[in-house]
Design a binder for these strands. Structure first.
Lengths: 215, 215
DNA sequence: TCCATATGGATAGCGACACTATCCATATAA
DNA sequence: TTATATGGATAGTGTCGCTATCCATATGGA
């Protein structure tokens, strides 16, 4: 498969594919002559993964590059790579240090994690993007004066726990190791808008149930 | 309170406050002379709400304007406004019509909603942003070849349902009508990164439990 | 053999967006 | 009186994800 066909089958313009090549998101094809390369199905899958992260997950390309580096890192064992790839995913504003709201948030999060008994090994330590992201979000809630204590967070943690089981089940349904990692990344990202959309629908439904006349 | 103090207490530069005034996100202050206005606590709360939506929710300003229009719309009753404000919140790429993946997604979503028994009145019909967002997300999963049938979605819907109860409980804990609406919007937006962060931590935890040696 | 077409590579430009900086006439507070 | 602040208008900035253009080389069908 050459560039034009790769572009056609993926629905991405050649200019954009070249851009991804340039940025190191898409590995170069197998050089068949000095000025031509051959691409295969793995390049198609990679393009899908890139689009999932950029278009759906709205991750900046630098983050995508970091995630893909982990996906491609053959020096780690399979399970570490799944964890590490998801590890690298989060984005968004990092919380600023030396902020009292951040310290309070960190405390809240620690109590929550104690309460639900998440031990996190090296995959989700206090330096992991997911943890930082969570602390930043809780800090923002504190800063804006909205309630966010352990009691408020518990239902969220319980929900997250059940979703993680479903997610990992789905990942384990793949046989190929490479596809498992890609699925872990893609599904983590792609199910986010699903989750947020369902939550909003559920809020509307609950609104109706509590207040609505139904009309 | 005048502009400089509003800026200082909110931590937003005067230039940006002026920008929000210009864009119609922040209502003008009470004109005290020809060249000066007086701002109050409601302006501070409004600024917090704007920042929650723009900084945390990453909503474009046009969307923020639409949401705030509903928040300020006195012609509707309280409960409709809560629903309507959350209704207007979603953003992101609208699914393109005449796409087979969208049709399939719509079918899947319909079956899911049947299954969980969400009736949605006028708050969450098939034209609501939340519904469109959900369909678009499911379509993207289909398009990229990842499994997303009713069975996959059920745990997500169940989780969303429980979270909605917690969210509405929190909203109802406010006494003031205006604050209830603001809290509904703010908490819907502000708890999103919390939820996504917890989900990623939970995935890491589940990864550890299934595969990890712990070390 | 010839030549339209495609390729990889490099570089510059674009459009959207959320601010940000500057300027100005007026008005206020010390 | 005079330094400072205000509302208002307008233009500029920086980031980011592409997109368009150009070019020397190579291919492959007539």
């Amino acid at each position: 498969m050459r560039l034009a066909q790769l572009s056609e089958r993926s629905g991405i313009t050649t200019a954009t594919v070249k851009y991804y090549l340039r940025e190191g998101l898409l590995p170069p094809g197998r050089r068949v002559t000095a000025t031509q390369s051959e691409y295969d199905e793995s390049h198609l899958r990679r393009l899908r993964l890139i689009r999932a992260m950029t278009q759906v997950g709205r991750l900046p390309v630098t983050t995508v590059r970091e995630v893909l580096a982990v996906v491609d890192d053959g020096s780690q064992d399979q399970h570490s790579r799944i964890g590490a790839a998801v590890w690298a995913l989060p984005h968004g504003n990092e919380p600023t240090a030396d902020d009292p709201a951040v310290a309070a948030a960190e405390h809240t999060v620690q109590m929550l994690l104690d309460r639900v008994g998440w031990s996190f090994g090296r995959l989700a330590g206090p330096d992991s993007p997911a943890y930082r992201k969570l602390v930043g979000a809780v800090a923002e809630l504190h800063r804006l004066g909205y309630p966010c204590n352990v009691e408020n967070l518990l239902p969220y943690a319980a929900a997250a726990s059940r979703l993680a089981e479903a997610d990992l089940d789905l990942v384990e349904s793949y046989d190929d190791a490479e596809e498992q990692i890609e699925a872990a990344v893609a599904c983590t990202v792609l199910y986010e808008p699903v989750l947020l959309g369902l939550r909003r629908l559920a809020e509307a439904e609950e609104c109706n149930r509590r207040f609505g006349t139904g009309s």
